[in-house]
Simulated assay, not measured.
Amino acid sequence: MAKKVTKSADEMSFLDHLEELRWHLIRATVAVLIAAGIAFMAKGFIFDVILFGPKNADFITYDILCKAAQYLGLNESFCFDEIPFRIQSRTMAGQFSAHMWTAITAGFIIAFPYILYEFWRFISPALHEKERSASRGFIIISSILFFIGVLFGYYIVSPLSINFLGSYQVSEEVFNDIDLSSYMGLVRTSALASGLVFELPIIIFLLTKLGLATPESLKKYRKFALVGILIVSAVITPPDIASQVIVAIPVLILYEISIFISRLVLRKQLKEERENQLTKRD
């Protein structure tokens, strides 16, 4: 039986690259499905403890915000005994559908480091040895930022949204019976959106490497970025100023960190260029 010849990145055709990408996507998808299967079997813990946690008045976020409001003498809107709404399923497949999509979302979050690993395996052959060495922490740092973002979305964005929207009433005659898919969609979107937003430093790092972003351009468009961040905060949080500010602050910090990262990348690139020029002269 003939041995399969492994081609280098330079020898591979466009179709070869597509075939290689296909296998990376297949492996990443299998990892998500395996993690989703585990999450599917842990239904009780995921739903009762994690997803329905922000619905309970004793959730840790409400407790901390209540104590902070009392200490500062502010409006104690987070000090309450219950959030006045019930969750219901109004379709035959409503609960099963929520179970499936929640398992897939959990599978994606759990398998995220492996997805990044497959992405890295696909692009790394096209990088120089120095670039590969400099980017060794890519998977770890990206995963940490993503998980921090997911936790931020779960512990900050979700409770703020659930407390505001779940207790909001236009009249005492109207009681909030929230559909299961609507509730799950809010929690999932809050966690995933925050996780992806926290990847901002990595995105800026890659854009700087490609020459599409510089510290000067990031500073120049800081005002526009601020407006964009406030818009994103308004979209993923309830329409009150306090919630939007709480969400906007860490994103603004990430933007400033991204400027610093961009400056470091450019400084390193300029240093390498000078060393290469000196080497050529010698």
Rank of each mutant, 00 (worst) to 15 (best):
S233G: 11
R222Y: 12
K209M: 13
F175C: 00
I236T: 06
T208M: 10
P125T: 05
L116D: 08
F96M: 10
N163L: 08
V245H: 13
S181M: 12
F108K: 01
Y155T: 14
G37M: 06
F47L: 03
I115M: 05
V174E: 15
S8C: 02
R90M: 10
T208W: 10
I109G: 02
Q277K: 13
L192K: 00
I257H: 11
N56H: 12
Q269F: 05
T279W: 14
V170G: 15
G149V: 04
S217G: 09
L252M: 15
R121D: 06
I64G: 08
E129C: 09
D48K: 12
E256P: 09
Y117W: 09
L33Q: 00
Q244G: 03
A248Q: 05
A57S: 14
R222C: 07
I202D: 00
E131A: 13
I156M: 09
H24L: 02
E199A: 03
T61Q: 13
W23N: 08
D58Q: 12
V49L: 13
E199K: 02
Y114P: 00
K268S: 13
M41C: 13
L252W: 15
N163E: 14
S135E: 02
T102V: 00
I259D: 07
V227G: 05
V197D: 03
L160P: 03
V227P: 01
I140D: 07
F59P: 03
L226K: 04
R121N: 10
E273Y: 11
F45G: 12
I110W: 05
F59G: 11
Q70S: 11
P250V: 06
Q277A: 14
E172R: 08
V235F: 14
Q169F: 13
R136V: 01
D16Y: 07
W120R: 02
D81E: 03
R27Q: 05
E172P: 06
I104K: 00
T61Y: 13
T279R: 14
S182T: 08
I139P: 03
T102Q: 00
Y62S: 06
L33R: 02
F119R: 04
S13H: 06
A2C: 01
I46L: 05
A106I: 03
V187A: 00
T91V: 05
Y168K: 10
I46S: 00
I253T: 10
A68C: 04
F85L: 04
I139W: 05
L74V: 07
V30H: 09
H24P: 03
I109N: 04
A106K: 01
K220D: 15
